[in-house]
Computed example of a mutant assay.
Amino acid sequence: MDDNRRFTRLPQDAKACLVLPGQTIDGEVHDISLKGALFLALSDDLPTHWHEHEGTLNIELNDGEVVISMNVRLAFIDGHHAGLEVTSLGLDSASHLRRLVELNLGAEDLLQRELGMLWDNR
């Protein structure tokens, strides 16, 4: 399988909840990037028909001291995993996500390249 991702995925083990119309699903984020996240549901509550589902992913970092909240679209569901595409972020969440990526990439040039691709992709 080809991996055509343009954004670096950062491994995470963060508590999260996915809020979809009419339901909230508790879980964890296994990885995150500037453009998406891989969510693991802790129950069987993911929708079976995921096309065009949009919602909000809330990710807790540092034992809940920091929350990244992003509007997302379901890209795929595979068992208890959901691939999520970020559709928008608030300013505070974008700052936290940028800082998380910056700390994990460890290189300013890589961060700037990914930020450039993010803006070019809009």
Rank of each mutant, 00 (worst) to 15 (best):
L42T: 04
L42C: 06
S43H: 07
D44L: 03
D44I: 01
L46Q: 02
P47R: 08
T48R: 14
T48G: 08
T48L: 10
T48I: 13
T48A: 12
H49Y: 09
H49E: 09
H49W: 02
H49Q: 12
W50V: 11
H51R: 15
H51P: 00
H51A: 12
E52V: 07
E52T: 10
E52K: 14
E52N: 15
G55Y: 06
G55F: 06
T56W: 09
L57R: 01
I59P: 01
I59G: 02
I59E: 02
E60T: 01
E60I: 00
L61H: 09
L61V: 08
N62K: 08
N62A: 11
N62Y: 08
D63K: 12
D63R: 13
G64L: 05
G64S: 01
E65W: 00
E65L: 11
E65I: 07
V66A: 01
V67S: 04
I68F: 14
I68Q: 08
S69T: 15
S69D: 01
S69R: 15
S69G: 06
M70I: 14
M70C: 13
V72Y: 05
V72T: 10
V72F: 05
V72E: 03
R73F: 02
R73T: 13
L74D: 00
L74T: 08
L74G: 02
L74H: 05
A75D: 07
A75W: 02
A75I: 07
A75Q: 09
F76V: 04
F76A: 10
F76I: 02
F76D: 10
F76Q: 09
D78Q: 15
D78W: 03
D78R: 12
D78A: 12
G79E: 04
G79N: 09
G79P: 04
H80M: 07
H81D: 06
H81V: 01
A82N: 07
A82D: 03
A82H: 03
G83H: 05
G83L: 03
L84T: 07
E85W: 09
V86R: 04
T87I: 13
T87S: 10
T87D: 06
T87Y: 00
S88F: 05
S88T: 06
L89A: 14
L89V: 11
L89R: 08
L89Q: 11
L89S: 13
G90M: 04
G90T: 05
G90A: 05
D92C: 00
D92K: 14
S93V: 02
S93N: 09
S93L: 06
S93G: 05
A94N: 10
S95V: 09
S95G: 09
S95L: 15
S95H: 14
H96S: 13
L97N: 08
L97T: 07
R98Y: 11
R98P: 00
R99C: 01
R99T: 11
R99I: 03
L100G: 04
V101E: 01
V101T: 13
V101F: 01
E102I: 00
L103S: 09
N104M: 10
N104L: 01
N104D: 06
N104R: 14
L105K: 08
L105D: 02
L105C: 03
L105N: 05
G106K: 06
A107T: 03
A107P: 00
E108G: 03
E108V: 14
D109C: 08
L110T: 01
L111D: 04
Q112V: 15
Q112I: 12
